[in-house]
Design a protein around this nucleic acid. Structure first.
Lengths: 205, 205, 205, 205
DNA sequence: GATGAATGAGCCTTCATTCAT
DNA sequence: AATGAATGAAGGCTCATTCAT
């Protein structure tokens, strides 16, 4: 029988993740030390190891959060709409990165900026860690499939030309999502206001 | 009177960069040690320090290469064409990441895969290093401007609707470039064949 | 809630200083590595860094100890005596370097030989490190002032000729202290027995 | 037959020593690298090794120079004068460190400041290097003997009390020399003007 | 004789992780 | 459960010295 209730345990994990996300967003995965994370969470240096086996595991948890939060809105639209257009999906995707905060798995408000900065770093981890990559690829393929299927439904009802490749169109949607995300946090193109609508207009030209 | 000519010196720098790029592409910036780079270049541990003041400087050089090589083709098209369409520019941008090799500043053949894996890591560095960020932002803004101006020329001659925001359209082009790049090296969507044409078709739908 | 009390922490710092002093006395500041100091203190390589930010800081602590212990006795005499003579002050100063051990700030017995060998090295550091120099100059000026004032009191009551320069006389006292210190540890004139009285006799000739 | 005449060889050695002395005076023995010395002498990195087997040997040469130049004037007075007083010898000794330049073995003008800064560092080397120590002790004992003998001649003719210990008196002279030297370069008591006469007055009080 | 590129051992320092308390 | 001191393996970098040219 656990000395601590599963709820308390999960809450503490959430605290540590949130602390780590703040640190990582500020200094980067590899410039943040475990004691720093612990201190940011108001814990002693050894405490996080009761909740996570290693720093890697914390990174993994954050990566998984980041992928989910970034993908969720498009996926929801793709699954909830009969025959969305590419432009609609793109707009839905970009809406996420226009916002200031999102709500994470534990119901915590997370500054979007913080999340996106972690997301970008996560992409580097994909190249190194098989586990991160597996999570990322699986997540990507899930959304990709949802979008492609939605687009195929559109082709079936004629709201989208049958000649375009639905898979490539789905990739296009996600590419724009990632590309604009990157512009916001890395390339100084942070003025995201109206981004979703603007890009939608470009695509509808 | 230097024993090695400036050319040989530059060639050696190039060798070290190439070795570092192989290591970085394989293991990541922070998982690669300086002695590893030296060994990969066939040198002793101290040798790279005659050519670069620090590991940071090597990363910087690679980052700068990566930005240039990724941006060059679109920028060239934007500057060489009277009134390119968004789809044309996107196709030009994506052509780069469809290839297998590119030629770097020193005239060396570089596997694109290698370069792109470094590019993704570079984005993380942008968040940490002011110098990397400056280079990145400057590079980004240069291409962005070229593309936006090309699109405005298109609007002037009526080949593109005057209602779309040329700046946002330019961001869209670059977003797609970065997003597809990421898919190729990180999300396992590596089958890039026909990518440029396919996405062009999507946009023209 | 610290696991070790401030007292234990101070004691550990003292242990490390003592270990470093033994190493430095034996091999010199720059021939002693941090792992050597740690080993001499019975600790692992990283442990001293929990107590000192850098090797420099350890050197600084030892330098400051050395200055204080060497200067203390003369200064005390100068401040406690109404009108001491130059010869009295010199004798008091030299008494320190005749001894075998002194007690350091932490109440630890320190072999004088060890301390003096560090003192000599400290003088070299003065030439390099602004911080060491500041401490040294401040310490020097403090004792110098105390001695000069004591001598001026002597001149006021006629126990010393008014014609001699009290400042120079004070420098003479300290010069002899440092000069004899150096002879003991560097020039092989270690037979310090009777040094204080003998030099006093010379001065009173 | 040497490829280079002994004179040229000696001159080059002198150049290197002079360059090293400038570097050492400025940065310290252990903060100065061999390539730095070579560059200061206008030579390539490897060149000094044709004239000195190691950095240690350069230090040794400089140490030996420093001891000689510091000791020479007192020793000359002690040997040239029938019955000098302690105060006379001290004044002669201090005259050296009042000056701005001295002439080294090769006839080169050397800033006294530079020489004295090296001398202080040399004392640290004594603690580490048997060779430096041997040279130092030998030099010290030579001067010490000269001074003690001169003082004994004084005792023989009655110009000095027979009760004082001539050896200790000689040590006193040398102690003052070293102590004042140290004050000039390390303790910021650099106003050496009138030092010799002033201290003489103190001793004659 | 000279050059200066290269070597490689060694140094200071950091930090993920463990474990006695 | 929690603490935080301690561990010890690297890592980036320097530099005395060598040697091919």
């Amino acid at each position: 029988m656990p000395r601590i209730s599963p709820e308390r345990r999960a809450a503490k994990r959430g605290d540590i993740i949130a602390a780590a996300r703040r640190c990582f967003s500020r200094d980067g995965f590899h410039q943040t030390s475990m004691p720093e994370i612990a201190a940011e969470a108001g814990l002693s240096a050894g405490a996080p190891y009761r909740y996570f086996a290693s720093k890697e595991e914390i990174i993994l948890a954050i990566a998984s959060d980041a992928f989910r939060l970034v993908f969720e809105p498009v996926q929801r639209l793709a699954e909830a709409t009969d025959a969305p257009t590419v432009a609609d999906l793109v707009a839905a995707a970009l809406r996420t990165i226009e916002q200031d905060t999102v709500t994470d798995a534990a119901g915590r408000m997370v500054p979007v900026e913080e999340l996106l900065r972690c997301a970008v770093q996560t992409w580097s981890e994909i190249l190194r860690s098989e586990e991160v990559r597996d999570g990322a690829v699986k997540g990507f393929e899930g959304v990709h499939r949802s979008i492609a299927e939605a687009l195929r439904r559109g082709q079936a009802v004629g709201s989208m030309p049958a000649t375009v490749d639905a898979d490539l169109a789905a990739r296009t949607v996600m590419g724009l999502l990632h590309g604009m995300l990157l512009q916001r946090v890395a390339f100084g193109a942070a003025d995201a206001a109206g981004l979703a609508d603007g890009v939608q207009a470009v695509l509808r030209q």
